[in-house]
Simulated scan of single mutants.
Amino acid sequence: MSFRNSRKKVGLYGGTFDPIHTIHLIVAEQARDALEIDEIWFLPARIPPHKQTKQITADIHRVEMIARAIAGHSDFRLDTIELEREPELPSYTYDTVHILKERHPDIDFYFIIGGDMAAYLPKWHRIDELILMVQFVALARPGYVMDNPYMRHVIETEMPQLDVSSSMIRKKIAQGRSIRYLVPEAVRMYIEEKRLYEA
């Protein structure tokens, strides 16, 4: 099946990326390839609604790590739209998509989420409006069931489930253990240089 049309197609990939790791890049590339998307925009969040009580690494470091991670991919780009918000406001996907559609009326946007986040779609801020504004794409491991009323609006595509997370990487660094190959080498070197996540 081809998903091609004449309008530019951009995948939006949001998250704290604290730090960005290899699986983030694999997810982005798999979505880009499966849906024939022209570009993937990485959107680092300032205060995700589900993480408002958690400590998040400074924006400047997360942005730099993303920039280094995607530097070699011509179809990946960094967009700091969510970092332009007032510091005390959470990053709602509805607000981000609304602004991006106003700025880029000639682009069709696809919002990339994992299967775990798809399960929470009924709780997303202004989801009934959001689901009509952007095409959601959910990546899940084979056999994973995403069952809620909003899934009929979501394109589902499978990808192998690889058990790597930012929290696991932070824990390994705090324990003085290797993260080589779990993050791009440029990101690993930046983490070491800035001594991020050390205990």
Rank of each mutant, 00 (worst) to 15 (best):
M1H: 15
M1E: 10
R7I: 00
K8P: 02
L12M: 13
Y13E: 04
G14Q: 05
F17R: 08
L25T: 06
I26V: 13
I26Y: 09
I26L: 15
V27I: 09
V27D: 03
A34P: 07
A34T: 09
E39R: 07
I40L: 09
I40C: 14
W41F: 05
F42I: 02
A45V: 01
P48L: 14
K51S: 08
K51G: 07
Q52G: 05
I56E: 14
A58V: 04
A58C: 04
D59I: 03
R62H: 00
V63P: 00
V63G: 00
M65L: 10
R68A: 05
A71M: 11
A71V: 03
D75T: 06
D75C: 13
D79R: 12
R85I: 01
P87L: 13
E88V: 15
S91C: 07
Y94S: 03
T96I: 14
K101T: 07
I112E: 07
G115W: 02
D116N: 15
M117Y: 10
A118S: 06
K123P: 00
H125C: 07
I127Y: 11
I127M: 11
M133G: 04
Q135K: 12
L139R: 03
L139V: 02
A140W: 04
P142L: 12
V145A: 14
P149E: 04
Y150C: 05
H153F: 08
T157A: 07
Q161F: 06
L162W: 15
D163P: 02
I169Q: 02
K171G: 06
I173A: 08
G176M: 14
L182C: 10
A186R: 02
A186F: 00
M189S: 14
E192D: 13
E193Y: 06
K194C: 15
K194I: 11
R195P: 00
L196I: 15
